[in-house]
């Protein structure tokens, strides 16, 4: 008998209780404790910011008008980055960032996209990219998390290998909980992508005597630009 059959046989045999009876005795799970978390948008934003701040994630709230320009200015002021990785022009975010290419905002950044399989430019990605800008699928207020589904335009390593990860989050897509994301977006029903990620802060470790250190294997900084409508701007103190 194969290992598979032996293991399964043992499990089936081991369940001496009548199966129907066993299952009937496990009540349906009550997710109320997770489902009940409902916050207003300002409250969600605040929770998100607080949770991110706890793990050294940087959150900057921007109104939608000319946000790419404002973001670029902020990055120029607050990072040393020169070599920047962005999504391609046919991607929504890539399109919004297109002026970067022409240096229209007065920066001298070297900009490139993740346009080839990793095998062809691995060393460059690991050693010669300072910062990557990605979109996000959603955000989670309760835990201060970003939800990413990497795509051919924004592959997995984009949010992982460069020392600075910049993520753009639309406040309209800020959920209360991970549970709510799964429910509303019906992940299980629509099928899972190759890779789905929750990212909550820059990479960190406490493996040396419980002392927190950031930037162990992944990004050393995580900068999140949250886009809000004008009317939210005052509430959120957006520039």
């Amino acid at each position: 008998m194969s290992a598979r059959d032996t293991i399964l046989q043992r499990l089936f045999d081991g369940r001496t209780e009548a199966l129907g009876e066993t299952q009937a005795q496990v009540p349906a799970s009550q997710f109320h404790v997770l489902a009940q978390v409902k916050m207003s948008l300002p409250a969600r934003l605040q929770a998100f910011q607080q949770a991110m701040a706890k793990v050294e994630g940087e959150v900057i709230v921007l109104t939608r008008a000319q946000w790419p320009q404002k973001m670029a200015a902020w990055l120029a002021d607050h990072t040393q980055a020169q070599r920047i990785l962005v999504p391609p022009a046919h991607h929504v975010l890539g399109q919004a960032l297109a002026p970067l290419w022409q240096g229209q905002w007065g920066h001298t950044w070297q900009v490139r996209t993740y346009d080839a399989p990793i095998e062809t430019w691995q060393a460059e990605l690991f050693n010669e990219v300072d910062l990557a800008i990605t979109s996000t699928r959603a955000g989670i207020a309760q835990t201060g998390s970003l939800v990413l589904w990497p795509t051919p335009e924004e592959p997995r390593l984009m949010s992982l290998v460069p020392p600075i990860h910049v993520a753009i989050l639309d406040s309209q897509r800020l959920y209360n909980t991970f549970y709510e994301v799964l429910q509303v977006e019906a992940w299980a029903q629509q099928g899972m992508p190759t890779n789905a990620l929750l990212i909550s802060g820059p990479s960190k470790t406490a493996d040396i005597e419980q002392t927190l250190a950031y930037g162990v294997h992944g990004p050393k900084r995580l900068i999140v630009f949250v886009l809000v409508d004008e009317e939210m701007a005052e509430v959120c103190d957006a520039p």
Partner: peptide, 22 residues
């Protein structure tokens, strides 16, 4: 005591033909 870890990584298949890493 963390609300969540930095990464929660969900893997459902190997690299697909149009994907560039994984």
């Amino acid at each position: 005591g963390q609300a969540i870890t930095t990464y929660f990584n969900m893997i459902s298949r190997p690299r697909q033909p149009d994907e560039k890493d994984g």
